[in-house]
Design a protein around this nucleic acid. Sequence first.
DNA 1: TTTGAAACCACTACATC
DNA 2: GATGTAGTGGTTTCAAA
Lengths: 165, 165
Amino acid sequence: MDPDRLDSLDRAILRALARDARATFAQVGAEVSLSAPAVKRRVDRLRERGVIRGWTVQLDPAALGWHTEAFVEIFCQGSTSPATMRTAVERYPEVVTASTVTGDVDLVVQVRARDMRHLEEVVERLAAEPFVARTRSTVVLSALVRRPDAVPATAVAAPDAPRDV
Amino acid sequence: MDPDRLDSLDRAILRALARDARATFAQVGAEVSLSAPAVKRRVDRLRERGVIRGWTVQLDPAALGWHTEAFVEIFCQGSTSPATMRTAVERYPEVVTASTVTGDVDLVVQVRARDMRHLEEVVERLAAEPFVARTRSTVVLSALVRRPDAVPATAVAAPDAPRDV
DNA sequence: TTTGAAACCACTACATC
DNA sequence: GATGTAGTGGTTTCAAA
């Protein structure tokens, strides 16, 4: 994934697949002006390079029984390793994302629960983890935007843009 | 999506598709002990009901040029409607999620940027939105868990579990 | 719900630029 | 190097039992 970078055709293919990951190679090819085998070769290559990690289905959380969502900020005791936090936190099926962050808080966990009672129970279990000093929860009222798999347009994430970091 | 709920077969199919959304109906059928046409019918139905919203590709953000991530908490002037926040915020390709929340903060925005300079620029643009009073940013150090499209096991989100809300 | 037939798709080999 | 074309085998899809 380092040696060669994404060209505009790769990005166009990824954008098409982000919109419909079950599109046929011929359909994608029609969008990007390429033959089906050419699209397949590039997709195979993007998979090998690790750019494409997999294919998944976008679901309606409410239809699956998730009616409540919250950000749980976790303050850790002393210095806990990210590996410890990860193994603890990924055992929870209710945990959607977990990130170590800068600032007062050590860990931000995004939790999905059936209802408030379930959320409360999950927060209590998190607070009882040995490395957790205290938690602070923020309940989501309304999910305004949700697009975890967006493919940036050329201009936004062009790897050939000037670098300064 | 209200009239009839998900049974264990539906959930098994969704779990298989969450793992590999490009699996053939025959492959999914082999996993859940169903014929390919039977799987297709259920999948078609799940789409119609809105349980399945679509199919997408899981990408490596770094490979696309996203090297920096942050939570930007936004305090709004007076009372801003969620609709106003949404239209403003969804114009940013850098915005991954946006949620109105309980507590001091009005809006939590998850932002993906090329680098720190880009992140700073996005935060400045957000802060300049007319309804924004002030912002507070928390930079993500390490993404420990990332599974926005997880399908819960039967026990977790069983719609037939006792309800109390 | 399962079977069968037609259309379509994926995949490979080979030729081309 | 990457793309296009053709042919085979498997999949989807609809119809009928």
